[in-house]
Amino acid sequence: MVIGGIDIVLLIASMMVAATPILLAATGEMVAEKSGVLNLGVEGMMIIGAISGFAAAVATESPFVGFMAAAVGGAVMALLFALLTQYLLSNQVATGLALTLFGLGLSALMGQGYQGIKPPPTAKIDMGPLSDIPGLGPILFNHDWVVYLSLLLVGGTWAFLKYTRAGLILRAVGESHDAAHALGYRVIRVRIAALMFGGALAGLGGAYLSLVRVPQWTEGMTAGAGWIALAIVVFASWKAERVLLGAYLFGGVTVLQLRLQAAGIAIPVQVLSMAPYLITIIVLVIMSAPRGRATLAAPAALGRVFHASH
């Protein structure tokens, strides 16, 4: 299947790879926002994940250890954010922006000496005959384990929020922290857990960039992926299935425009480069347009400071 010099099967397969970092980060941020906290530090947590994962993988020669280190790195950043916003009651927006700037700076410092090094390769999972199925095989059964993990995490998050009691409590805390507190739920504890989950996923997403997608370390390599993840969460109306759609759409258009550039299509490169951002936002805005439903989905306590008055 080749259209206009572009192999569709390869395109879809590489779309999944391109989308995975954003999918991971956006899923984590969705959980954090569902608990009522707006963490604008996704970009900073991603890049810390990228460098800590890279460093750990290079040191141990194990991509798995690298990914674990990235998750821990992201979660530590999120914990820092949680301490500032939940205990010291600092402003969430300002703290999130500061977290991004801090992460970018700290990662540049940590990354001294890692530039130009190749990380250990993350192996693709061998699915035997499954990956030989024409069309479907290369698309679905020829990826590394992180791609499958990200899909599992999206599905798991969806089921967690919809079917489990813990998920219900998390949504309740994000809806009205005062009511949840009155019923005896520990608002701050729930929020810290949600934030750290978000941080860990952002860290994984960052490490996927530095260990698989690129794969090497360069300063500022997340290049706005964290911001796109944030935008996707909002325009996906805080719904896991739409986050998946948004991330894959973004990944798809990103890959497509690269192919189009390579194929020498007569569209200015600048227009092609901005296409993924533009198209993702436009599609999700249209989807979230019926206002009543979208406003229902937004956690009512999002961004509000919780301070138990008794």
Binding site: L168, A172, A180, A300
Partner: peptide, 29 residues
């Protein structure tokens, strides 16, 4: 939680309900 466990229940003045959740979910909480 402890009070509820012993059989003390409370209906709040300013309702402790969650608008975006349904009745059953609110009760479960």
């Amino acid at each position: 939680r402890e009070a509820r466990g012993l059989g003390v229940a409370m209906v709040f003045q300013h309702f402790s309900l969650f608008d975006a959740l349904n009745v059953a979910e609110n009760v479960a909480l």
